[in-house]
Structures are given as structure tokens and as C-alpha cells.
Amino acid sequence: MMDKLLLRARARLTVLVYDESGMSTVEYAIGTVAAAAFGAILYSVVTGDSIVGALTNIINRALNTGA
């Protein structure tokens, strides 16, 4: 009887030590936060004055060709 209890306790401890079921959730959370931060940085760069001015200049030059 005692041996059975010890084996069960050992099996449960082994599962607790080696169980990584929560790791994927944490990895997804970190990935989501990193993607949101990258999106925010990209948005601030693209909507900045220099980028908007450069894109406007390129479009104006393409539309105002002498041909």
C-alpha cells in the first residue's frame, strides 16, 4: 500500500517538474506583445513627417513626368 502511494507521488512530481503545457501560452503572449510593439514603432516611423514627405515626393514625380 505504501509503495503504491510513493509511486503515485513520484509520478505526480515527475509530471509537475517536466510539464510544459503553460509554456506555449507564455510564448504566445510574449510574441503578441513584441508584434504589437513592432507595429507601433513601424506606424510611428511610417506616419512621421520625413517618410510622408518622401512618399509624396515620389508619387508627385511619378505623376508629373514630361511624357
Results as ranks from 00 to 15, higher is better:
A40H: 10
D19F: 02
A37C: 11
A9D: 08
G39M: 11
G66L: 00
R10F: 01
A35T: 13
Y18F: 13
K4L: 14
T14V: 02
M2V: 15
A11Q: 04
D19E: 09
A67G: 03
N64Y: 06
R10N: 05
L42A: 15
T25I: 03
A54T: 08
Y43S: 14
L6W: 00
S21Q: 08
R61T: 06
R10S: 09
A62G: 00
V33L: 15
V17D: 01
L42H: 07
D3V: 07
R61A: 12
K4D: 13
S21L: 06
V52N: 00
D3F: 09
T56L: 08
Y28G: 00
G53S: 09
V26C: 02
T47I: 11
M23D: 10
E20L: 15
Y28A: 11
E20N: 15
M2D: 15
T65R: 13
T56R: 10
L16Q: 12
G48L: 07
Y18A: 05
A34I: 09
E20Q: 14
I51Q: 07
L13K: 04
Y43T: 14
Y28L: 08
S44C: 05
R8C: 01
Y43W: 14
R8N: 06
V45G: 02
G66A: 02
V26I: 12
A40K: 11
N60F: 06
Y28M: 10
N64C: 04
N64L: 10
N60M: 09
L5V: 09
T32Q: 04
A9H: 09
V15H: 06
A36G: 02
L63F: 13
T47P: 03
I58G: 04
F38K: 15
A67Q: 00
M1P: 08
S44T: 09
D19H: 06
A35W: 03
A29Y: 04
A54L: 10
M2A: 15
A9R: 12
M2E: 15
T14Q: 05
E20V: 15
N64E: 13
I30P: 00
S44F: 13
G48S: 15
L42E: 11
T32E: 10
M23R: 11
V33P: 02
I59D: 01
A34Q: 03
R61K: 14
Y18D: 09
A29M: 08
N60G: 08
F38P: 00
A40V: 10
A9Y: 04
G39K: 12
F38W: 05
L55F: 11
A34K: 07
N60P: 00
L55H: 06
G22I: 06
L13V: 08
G48R: 11
G39H: 11
A54V: 04
Y18R: 13
A37M: 14
A9S: 12
G39Y: 07
V17T: 06
L5F: 10
M1Q: 07
T56C: 04
D49L: 04
G48I: 10
L16K: 13
G66Q: 02
S21N: 06
D3M: 14
A36R: 13
I51H: 03
V26L: 09
T25R: 03
V15Q: 11
Y18N: 14
S21D: 04
D3K: 14
N57V: 02
N60H: 08
I59E: 03
T25D: 04
L63P: 00
